[in-house]
Design a protein around this nucleic acid. Structure first.
Length: 401
RNA sequence: GGAGAGAUUCCCGAGCGGUCAAAGGGGGCAGACUGUAAAUCUGCUGGCUGAUGUCUUCGUAGGUUCGAAUCCUACUCUCUCCA
């Protein structure tokens, strides 16, 4: 892998933008000449403790850099998290406490190191330097940006057009993020395509502070399992890498066919030539489901094990092909006073539905089964027996213990 | 600082004194069809109860009225224009 062209190819593969063009090669050569690793920055949001498949795209790119000897610099946004973002219309987003941050950080580490090499990773909290900025510093920083440029960004433009409030401090966030690049002396910053502006701003600000500007590399955004919006915790369309294997498998099986190839390309190491032939085969009429299976198995084995992935496959077939039961059905203990109870009460009491009304709606919609027998009437009085299996909707199973 | 517009159920958005738990759409859930895909069709989408009713809900707090999401007052927040 000494060939510089090959290295550049590997590093840039799959990226949407590399700006400025051609600089990546210079940086890599420079690093070699100076005999130092490049510092490759990636920011992570401190507010949610989950890493999902979408975020693994830049993470895996970062990993690639590590393989070539470079240093991953993960910026954990505790500073911005602590300020809290009051943008939400009705609710002020909760400000994270030091406790939360500690907890989230801990969770992140275990997840991130499922992908990254800890020895070549530097995790930094941006509060470390942001907390120390004085008002003068902040004003100086803000003077590097104009309102017009801020408003040009889709995100603000839309809100401005639709008369949705924009708080002043929201303009500051990208600047702080940019300043992080100064603080850690980033050579390169990675991020999703939605981060392009912020990343470029980092480059500019570095130059204002007399550093060489970072190169920015953007990775594609991944649609969530709903197939439309980008994968995000807040849309509840994500696949978390620490979720239960069956859960990961199931979620992946429900992505639209049109995304199978994209998921393979962006989130797995399946070789390009295999992906190409899968694509051909699907276009020639093979059932896309088979390939979705390959994808789901692959991802489960990446984050768990191959055995686990085979188990998930079997389970999946059993449940959905043969309409059988899952491997693990959570059991519940029924208190003795419920030896005879209205089904709606029962469902609510044991958290299978949120309310009795919801329970009766579900029953009317033919969504509740006991031992595979449809519950026809919400007046039904249920006598729980050990071993009974209750199914609510498609996915919720519970066994009486 | 001044003038105006507005805040509706998860979201958008109608309603503008009773027939409003509140149109329509989106999203979500469930059912049919399937490959737990997409598309399509159907139902549901405040709580408690039953199959009738009852309680809470239309920014917040009061008021007018037999009766208010709808009128009045104050407050909070947002937007627009002016300075």
């Amino acid at each position: 892998m000494e060939n510089i062209k090959e290295i550049i190819f590997e590093l840039s593969k799959g990226c949407v933008d590399i700006l400025p063009e051609g600089e990546l090669e210079k940086k890599v050569l420079l690093a070699k000449k100076e005999n130092r690793p490049l510092r490759v920055k990636l920011g992570i949001d401190a507010s949610g403790p989950y890493i999902h498949l979408g975020f693994t795209i830049p993470l895996r790119k970062l990993k690639k850099f590590q393989e070539f000897g470079h240093t991953a610099v993960l910026i954990f946004g505790d500073f911005t998290g602590k300020i809290g973002d009051p943008t939400g219309k009705n609710k002020t987003r909760p400000q994270l406490t030091d406790e939360d941050i500690k907890e989230n950080l801990k969770n992140y580490k275990t997840q991130v190191f499922k992908i990254l090499d800890p020895k070549k990773t530097e995790i930094r909290l941006n509060g470390e330097w942001s907390d120390k900025l004085t008002p003068q510093d902040i004003i100086k920083l803000s003077s590097k940006m104009t309102v017009a440029r801020m408003l040009e960004r889709d995100y603000f433009e839309n809100r401005y057009k639709h008369k949705i409030p924009i708080s002043l401090h929201e303009f500051l966030y990208p600047l702080f993020q940019a300043y992080d690049s100064v603080a850690v002396r980033a050579d390169i910053e990675l991020g999703g395509t939605d981060q392009k502006f912020n990343l470029l701003l980092g480059r500019e600000i570095q130059q204002e502070y007399g550093q060489e500007g970072q190169i920015i590399m953007t990775t594609p955004l991944l649609e969530g399992i709903d197939g439309t919006r980008k994968m995000s915790k807040s849309y509840d369309n994500y696949v978390g890498i620490t979720e239960k294997p069956s859960e990961i498998f199931g979620k992946l099986m429900s992505i639209p066919d049109s995304l199978i190839i994209k998921y393979m390309l962006l989130t797995t190491d399946i070789p390009q030539k295999d992906i190409d032939s899968y694509k051909d085969e699907m276009e020639n009429g093979k059932n896309p489901k088979e390939y979705k299976m390959i994808l789901a198995k692959k991802i489960v084995s990446m984050y768990y094990s191959e055995n686990e992935s085979l188990r998930c496959e079997k389970e999946f077939n059993r449940i959905f092909k043969e309409k059988g039961l899952p491997d693990f059905i959570p059991s519940i203990k029924v208190s003795s006073e419920d030896s005879s109870i209205k089904i709606t009460q029962f469902l609510k009491k044991y958290n299978l539905t949120e309310s009795t009304s919801q329970a009766s709606r579900l029953i009317q919609g033919k969504g509740v089964k006991i031992n595979d027998n449809l519950v026809e009437n919400f007046d039904f009085v249920y006598t729980p027996k050990k071993g009974d299996v209750i199914q609510v909707g498609k996915k919720r199973f519970v066994k009486i213990d």
